[in-house]
């Protein structure tokens, strides 16, 4: 006999609501979290945060930001278990941590230098729009540098399969069969390349944050 699982109302998140939670919504959210063992799930996520950061303090700080994400973003308990949702936030916050802090710093500098003297203007200024464009360009430049570092790693490791994968992916060719056809490689090479690629990216992300992973201990 199939017993239907209880259906929970999805939590919309304050980003989607565009406002803070009311007292009733906060209480309902707390009830939902309790029903899904938030305390235990948070320990699982903290463990993950510690494995990524290799620092108790950094892991705790990361979890503080994860709690904020949890309130801000939507979560459907019928689709994603709470522990997994929290681990996703851990990964997302951790991988964006450098980018966010550096971007915030640069934006503040840019604001003080360029926008503040014109702040009495009411309409969005050209400076503000330029700032957005500058931010986008900077992110693209950082991503290019990350990709170059990845390519350098693949070249050093003589990982031709992944070098081809990067090139095809930039050309928006995502089908592995098509990659195999164009490169003349066995498609299985591309399947196997995926595991090496994931490990390489994990190490690069760690290295940028001052974390050095040993072989096979990325998680």
């Amino acid at each position: 006999m199939n017993v239907p699982k209880p259906q929970w109302a999805a939590y919309p998140g304050t980003d989607r609501l565009g406002r803070a939670l009311t007292n009733e919504e906060k209480a309902a959210f707390a009830k939902l979290l309790r029903a899904h063992d938030y305390v235990g799930a948070r320990l699982v996520a903290l463990n993950f945060a510690h494995k990524l950061t290799r620092s108790r303090q950094a892991a705790k700080e990361l979890m503080g930001r994860v709690d904020v994400r949890l309130v801000q973003q939507a979560w459907d308990p019928n689709e994603v278990p709470l522990a997994k949702a929290l681990c996703r936030y851990v990964w997302s916050v951790w991988t964006h941590s450098l980018e966010e802090s550096a971007a915030a710093e640069r934006l503040t500098d840019a604001y003080l230098q360029e926008v503040a003297p014109f702040q009495e203007r009411t309409a969005p200024s050209a400076e503000q729009m330029n700032l957005e464009e500058a931010r986008r360009r900077r992110r693209e430049a950082e991503a290019k540098a990350d990709l170059e570092a990845l390519r350098a790693h693949f070249e050093k490791a003589k990982d031709e399969g992944n070098l081809d994968w990067v090139r095809f992916s930039l050309e928006e060719i995502d089908d592995l069969q098509e990659m195999a056809r164009r490169s003349g490689r066995d498609v299985r090479e591309f399947y196997l390349a995926a595991e090496r690629r994931k490990r390489a990216v994990q190490r690069l992300l760690g290295a940028k944050r001052g974390v050095k992973y040993e072989e096979g201990d990325e998680s």
């Binding site: 681990c87 991988t95 690629r197 490990r199 994990q202 998680s219």
Partner: peptide, 22 residues
């Protein structure tokens, strides 16, 4: 764009780790 591809790589690298951690 490089940014799109890098994000894809980051997501891909996180999939297994998240699954295992959770």
């Amino acid at each position: 764009t490089a940014q799109e591809l890098w994000q894809r790589l980051v997501d891909e690298a996180g999939e297994d780790l998240i699954e295992r951690a959770a």
